[in-house]
Design a protein around this nucleic acid. Structure first.
Length: 551
RNA sequence: GCGCCCGUAGCUCAGUGGAUAGAGCGCCGGACUACGAAUCCGUAGGCCGCAGGUUCAAAUCCUGCCGGGCGCACCA
């Protein structure tokens, strides 16, 4: 971070003196190949044309100015078509250790968001059955995005939208109802598309114990209502428990029904109409979403008089913005991607920018056991629940697995692999790095070696390539978090952690700490590893994965 | 038919304009009387789906095609 911002401002002012602005496309980044130094910049190639110069000539001038501007730069080279390859003196990187040890868990987190209010809405599964593993992925991604944004000084609220107003809920009531009738050996007419899972029978049994068999003598509509009410509450309580066990917290549970009851949906519809964005046609109310780029207009109220899901969703998002959120993040299953353009259109109709709504699409999870796919369907009652999976592989392993892929790519979740303690399952690799460091300090304490005071003189000994690799990577942690926050990509953090853990393990096996050649070197290494431990713990915390001291 | 996503090493995946395209797993070969071997070191493995185009530079951007997934409701 310091390396990047520092170079950026040095080069920026040098260019300014030459009469050129910093181009948007210019980058400063660690090059893939270490032989090109610590940081590489392409600005000369992008700016040379504007100044009427050859890229390499401009790069040579920049090189001179850079070296004159800052003695912390130990080397600047012009390479290839005009890259500027910059190498910092070791002292520059050593400062990172000092900084980490000073601010500890705050390292890497800075005020990127400047307190902007963001809502993250996720999971939001219909309470018609327990959460399955696909919901688990959405839960992990949403929770992790929220943690990352919070760390970067966004004011985040997490929310679960309960779809308790629609047809699915009615079906839930009917499904429990017919199971009640079955249990009492009464004649049963089965509804279409009903929920056939075992858990529905359990709910029916509980309800009969609670209310007695008289329940089934009620008129069906009334009985089904009771069934629905009981079923939803009970299932929702189960969902809340599963999420809590999964270390996922929603601050707000928002009921669709409450929105309808308050008349918010009707009001939104009227508002759109009065502004010419909605109209009546063929007995239905439509919204003109095409004017905002959707490929056709969408129904808000069906000719039956019933409101569509889309209508209440618009009202819901209007409510979100009315609550003062600058940005709203929705996390949806990727099978809903066709819904994005109309929702973006709705957001614009509400007078917001299309970018005030960010949709993260989470691809479905392919659940495997020993390489064989396990079929899933909530309605057929055939699935692996999130809680079963967590019980089998552990919350840490499950979360890490969910967060170690781009969210819009398919995820193979092989139960046997995730249980295994191999590199196919990197959660242990990262945790082990943390545990190793902890146990090193435990051993030090055993031998009466105290954690040394941090000083530049001690750190000055850390100048081997392995030392510098480790310190450079720690220095990139803030950049990594910024990238993860800006692109809403939790996997960036888990990839970073794997890399950092890899360097740590490599370092550890090649460089004895407590048995270092001399005491000062031992102290210096202790300081650096303490810093690495802090960063690993911080990253795991953002993923919601524990950082054990022993394994 | 139209739209969106994906196609990178045997496998699982990073990399979205930069230099000789990376990591892990798997394969093969090494390292513990050692601060923890859940680890490390080494070898091998690639027309980045195909074909054009844009430019100093393309896995990355544009166009077309092929292959896979998902959508295309007065469902949610």
């Amino acid at each position: 971070m310091r390396a990047l911002t520092h170079l950026r401002s040095l080069l920026g002012s040098i260019l300014e003196k030459k009469g050129a602005a910093w181009p948007d496309k210019a980058t400063i980044e660690p090059p893939k190949d270490k032989q090109f130094g610590d940081m590489a910049c392409n600005v000369a190639m992008l700016t040379a044309g504007k100044l009427g110069m050859k890229p390499r000539d401009l790069a040579e001038e920049l090189k001179k100015d850079l070296l004159a501007a800052d003695p912390a730069l130990s080397k600047v080279e012009v390479a290839g078509p005009g890259f500027l390859n910059v190498t910092f003196a070791p002292a520059f990187w050593q400062k990172t250790v000092e900084e980490v040890l000073e601010v500890k868990q705050c390292f890497g987190k800075f005020n990127l968001g400047r307190g902007r209010k963001v809502q993250v809405e996720f999971v939001s599964a219909n309470p018609t059955g327990p959460l399955h593993i696909g919901h688990g992925r959405g839960a992990a991604v949403g929770d992790c995005v929220a943690r990352i944004l919070r760390a970067m000084d966004y004011e985040v609220s997490t929310e679960y939208y309960i779809n308790d107003a629609g047809r699915q809920m009615r079906l839930l009531g009917e499904s429990i109802w017919v199971r009640c009738l079955e249990l009492l050996k009464k004649p049963v007419a089965y509804p279409e598309d009903w929920y056939k899972g075992e858990y529905i029978i359990d709910l029916a049994r509980e309800l009969l114990t609670l209310k007695g068999s008289a329940l089934c003598d009620l008129p069906p509509a009334e009985g089904q209502d009771i069934c629905y009410e009981y079923g939803m509450k009970s299932i929702l309580a189960g969902i809340q428990k599963d999420l809590a066990d999964f270390r996922v917290e929603h601050q707000v549970w928002f009921s669709e029904k409450s929105l309808v009851a308050a008349g918010a949906v009707e009001r939104t519809l009227e508002d759109l109409k009065s502004r010419g964005l909605a109209y009546e046609e063929e007995g239905a109310a439509w919204m003109d979403t095409t004017r905002y780029g959707d490929d056709k207009n969408r129904v808000l109220r069906k000719s039956t008089g019933e409101l569509t899901y889309f209508a209440s969703d618009i009202a819901y998002h209007a409510d979100k913005y009315a609550r003062g959120f600058n940005t709203v993040v929705d996390i949806w299953g990727a099978d809903h991607h066709g819904y994005v353009p109309r929702m973006k259109a709705a957001v614009q109709a509400l007078g917001r920018d299309a970018d005030d709504l960010k949709v993260i699409l989470v691809q479905l999870v392919n659940l495997l056991r020993g390489g064989e796919q396990i079929a899933m369907s909530t309605r057929a009652g055939q699935f692996e629940t999130l809680s079963d999976v967590c019980a089998e592989v552990g919350v840490d392993a499950a979360r890490f697995m969910f967060l170690s892929r781009k969210s819009d790519s398919h995820l193979d979740f092989d139960l046997d692999l995730v249980k295994q303690q191999s590199m196919d399952n990197p959660v242990y690799y990262v945790q082990y790095a943390h545990a190793r460091i902890c146990s090193l300090f435990a051993k030090a304490a055993e031998r009466g070696v105290a954690m040394p005071e941090c000083s530049q003189a001690l750190l000055a000994q850390l100048d081997t390539p392995e030392d510098l690799d480790l310190m450079r990577l720690m220095e990139q942690y803030p950049d990594t978090l910024a990238n993860a926050a800006q692109t809403l990509s939790p996997h960036v953090v888990s990839f970073y952690l794997r890399e950092l853990a890899g360097l740590l393990h490599r370092y550890y096996s090649a460089n004895p700490v407590l048995a270092a050649p001399d005491e000062d070197l031992m102290r210096a290494r202790m300081l650096m590893l303490a810093a690495v431990g802090e960063v690993v713990r911080s990253g795991l915390e953002l993923l919601g994965v524990s950082a054990p001291e022993k394994m």
